[in-house]
Design a protein around this nucleic acid. Structure first.
Lengths: 205, 205
DNA sequence: CGATAATGTGAGCAATAACTCGCATTGTCA
DNA sequence: TGACAATGCGAGTTATTGCTCACATTATCG
C-alpha cells in the first residue's frame, strides 16, 4: 500500500493482452461511476473485468495508475475536442471563437458525464495532476493569443494573464457546475448563449 | 472501517472535554494540510492532538465525522462572510452589490487558504456535501432576488435560474482557481475589479 | 469524603485491500 | 512440433488503519 512507482509495468504486445488492459480500464470506469474512488478496489476491478488480480498487476503497478491512465485518456479526448472547437479561432470574430471554445468543452463533457463527474468530484489528486495543469495552460495560451491578435486594445489596458485566467476558469467552472448540478442544461442551446455572452461581454469594451 | 453512523457520540460538557474536542479538530486541520486526506489517520490525529485514540472516538464516530465537523465550521465561516458582504445588496447599485459578494467570498478564502485548498482539491465528498449545496442555494437565491428587484427588465428576457447559476458558479470557480493556482491574486485589487466586471457586464444590457 | 459520573488511556483486535509468487495456459516461431 | 516467451491465474501474505474495550484518572456534589 505504498505509492512509489507510477510507471507502467509491462507493455502489452499480443492482442490478448491489450484486450486485458482495455477490459481493466473499462471495468475501472464502470466501478468508479458506480461506487466511487474509495470503494474501487483492485480485486473488484479484476473481477469485474473478468481477469485475475495478477494480470492486473502485470500491467499496472497500482490502483492509482489505473485511474491515472483512465484520466489521461479522458484528458486526451477533452484536448481533442477543444482543439477541434478552436481550430480556426484566430480567424473568427470574438463571438464565434468563444462559441467554439465553449462548444468544444461542452462536447467533451457530454461523452461520459458520469465518469467526468467522478474525476471532478471525488478524485484525490493523483499523478496526472500535472496533465490537467498542462491542458489548462494550453487553453490559457490560446485565449491569450486570441486577445493579443484580435483585441490589441484590450491587451494594452488590462492584464492579459488575469483576463485569460478569469475566462478559462469561469467557462470551465460553469461547465463543471452544469455536469454536476444541472445536466439538463448540457443540451440547452440557450445555455451556451449565456456562457458565450459571459465571455464576450467581459472582454468587450 | 464502515461508515454508517455520522452522528456525534458524546456531548462534551466539562471544560476539559471541549478542549479535547478542539485539540482534535485543530490537529486534524494541520494534518490535512500537511499530509492530505488519505494520509490523515485517526491514530495520527490523536497523537498530534496529544490525546488518545479512545478519547477521539468518544466524541467522533469515525474519521469522516471529524473532517465533516471541520468542513462545517469552515462553511459556517464562509456563510458569515458572504452574508456580511451582501447584507444590504438589495439597496445597492449593481456594481457595489457584485463587489460585496465577491469581496465576501474572497475574504472567506483568505482565512486559511491551505485548508480550503484541501477541502476543494482532495476531499472525497463526505456527509456535508448537503451543506455545501445549501450554501450555494442561499447564494443563488440572493442573486436571483437581486435581479428580480433591481433588474426587472433582464428578469423578463432571460432565464433567471440560468443567469444566477452562471454568475454564482463563475465567481466561485474563479475564486477557487485563484486559491489553487494564483494565490498572489488574492490580494490584488485589480483582480477583484476583473471579477466585478465579469459579473456586471454579463447582466448589463 | 466517598460515591458516582465524566473523561482519558493505549494495547490490541478485526477488517480490509493492495500486492506477490509459483504455477498453468496460451501464443509464437524456428 | 517442440521450446521459449508471453500472458493469465488466484490463494495467500503483509501492512495498514479504523476502532473497541477493560481499566485508570479526574471532576462533581451531597
Amino acid at each position: 500500500m505504498q505509492k512509489i512507482a507510477i510507471k507502467p509495468r509491462k507493455q502489452a504486445s499480443q492482442a490478448r493482452s491489450t484486450a486485458t488492459v482495455d477490459a481493466i480500464m473499462r471495468a475501472t470506469a464502470r466501478i468508479l461511476v458506480k461506487r466511487g474512488y474509495q470503494a474501487t478496489t483492485t480485486n473488484h476491478i479484476a473481477e469485474t473485468a473478468g481477469v485475475s488480480v495478477g494480470s492486473l498487476y502485470q500491467y499496472f503497478p497500482n490502483k492509482e495508475a489505473i485511474v491515472a491512465a483512465l484520466l489521461d485518456e479522458h484528458l486526451e479526448a477533452t484536448q481533442e475536442f477543444l482543439r477541434r472547437g478552436t481550430a480556426n479561432a484566430l480567424g473568427q470574430p470574438l463571438e464565434d471563437a468563444a462559441r467554439g471554445l465553449i462548444e468544444g468543452l461542452l462536447a467533451a463533457h457530454r461523452v461520459d458525464p458520469d465518469l467526468h463527474r467522478v474525476f471532478v468530484e471525488e478524485l484525490p489528486r493523483i499523478a496526472t495532476f500535472e496533465r490537467i495543469h498542462q491542458l489548462e495552460q494550453e487553453t490559457l495560451g490560446l485565449v491569450r493569443a486570441y486577445i493579443e491578435v484580435r483585441l490589441p486594445d484590450l491587451a494594452k489596458k488590462r492584464n492579459l494573464d488575469t483576463v485569460a485566467f478569469v475566462i478559462v476558469h469561469a467557462v470551465e467552472a460553469v461547465t463543471h457546475g452544469v455536469v454536476l448540478f444541472r445536466p439538463d442544461l448540457l443540451e440547452d442551446p440557450a445555455f451556451v448563449d449565456e456562457i458565450v455572452r459571459l465571455v464576450v461581454r467581459y472582454v468587450t469594451e
